[in-house]
Simulated assay, not measured.
Amino acid sequence: MRRHLPWTLATLTALLLATTRTLDPTHALLLPLTALTATHLWRHLDDGDQATWPAPPDETRHGARHDLSDLGWAAFTRDGRVSARVTRRVHAIATHRLAHHGIDLDDPTHHPRAARLLGPDVLAGLTSRRPPTPRTLHHWLDALDDLTPHTPDPTPGRPRR
């Protein structure tokens, strides 16, 4: 019964269009037959082979262009502040740079010495959870760049070069 349903609907549609004189009998018959043929072809034609893109190479190297691009896109939040990811990275750099001076940034007892080297505003920003503005981040990076690596003098009486 279901197989004959489309043909029955096409015949009824042709009769309706012809008897109401919406279309002449020839076109009233051709319109439903064309729709029926198009539906039949649509359902039974093969889609063919689907082209697929090759998988991108999964080659991630430390410090590669991917990391730089990833950090660049993730640097700022929607409100224009520096993202937490970048802030954590700058905090790690500060921890590493201050460790050369014997200062632990996570230890509050070392904060006065860190404030003398970096400045109290930079230290307050690095130890807070509030996201900085791009200008503040630039100031922090300048302060970290100004830190000279602390290398102890091998001979105390002799001046360093």
Rank of each mutant, 00 (worst) to 15 (best):
135 R>Q: 14
40 H>D: 09
26 T>Q: 06
154 P>W: 04
72 G>M: 07
150 H>G: 04
123 L>Q: 03
60 T>E: 07
116 R>K: 12
23 L>S: 02
60 T>W: 10
136 T>W: 07
52 T>W: 11
112 P>E: 08
147 L>M: 03
37 T>F: 05
120 P>M: 03
109 T>I: 13
22 T>H: 03
2 R>I: 14
152 P>R: 12
103 I>W: 03
86 V>I: 15
72 G>C: 06
153 D>F: 00
96 H>N: 08
144 L>F: 06
99 A>H: 13
63 G>T: 08
138 H>C: 09
113 R>T: 10
96 H>Q: 14
157 G>I: 00
86 V>L: 13
13 T>Q: 04
65 R>Y: 09
153 D>T: 13
63 G>V: 11
107 D>T: 11
23 L>E: 02
81 R>F: 02
100 H>Q: 13
120 P>R: 12
61 R>P: 03
26 T>D: 01
35 A>R: 00
59 E>V: 12
100 H>S: 14
100 H>P: 00
147 L>F: 04
119 G>I: 04
26 T>W: 00
92 A>L: 06
41 L>R: 09
77 T>Q: 13
6 P>G: 07
63 G>R: 11
89 R>Q: 11
15 L>K: 00
118 L>S: 05
55 A>Q: 03
130 R>V: 13
92 A>T: 15
15 L>E: 05
148 T>G: 08
13 T>Y: 00
79 D>N: 15
45 L>V: 06
104 D>T: 15
150 H>I: 01
44 H>P: 02
4 H>A: 15
37 T>H: 01
46 D>H: 13
50 Q>Y: 10
75 A>I: 01
10 A>P: 08
112 P>M: 07
121 D>N: 13
5 L>R: 11
149 P>G: 05
74 A>V: 01
96 H>C: 09
61 R>N: 03
136 T>P: 01
88 R>V: 08
34 T>A: 14
40 H>R: 05
53 W>N: 09
23 L>Y: 09
104 D>H: 09
38 A>Q: 00
131 P>V: 07
67 D>S: 12
55 A>F: 01
138 H>K: 06
125 G>E: 07
49 D>P: 15
113 R>F: 07
58 D>E: 12
8 T>Y: 01
129 R>F: 05
106 D>A: 15
150 H>W: 11
47 D>K: 10
40 H>F: 13
117 L>E: 04
41 L>E: 03
143 A>F: 02
110 H>Y: 06
80 G>N: 08
135 R>K: 10
88 R>A: 15
8 T>H: 01
83 S>Y: 06
154 P>A: 10
96 H>S: 13
117 L>M: 07
44 H>I: 04
95 T>P: 00
47 D>G: 15
109 T>A: 15
10 A>Y: 01
29 L>E: 02
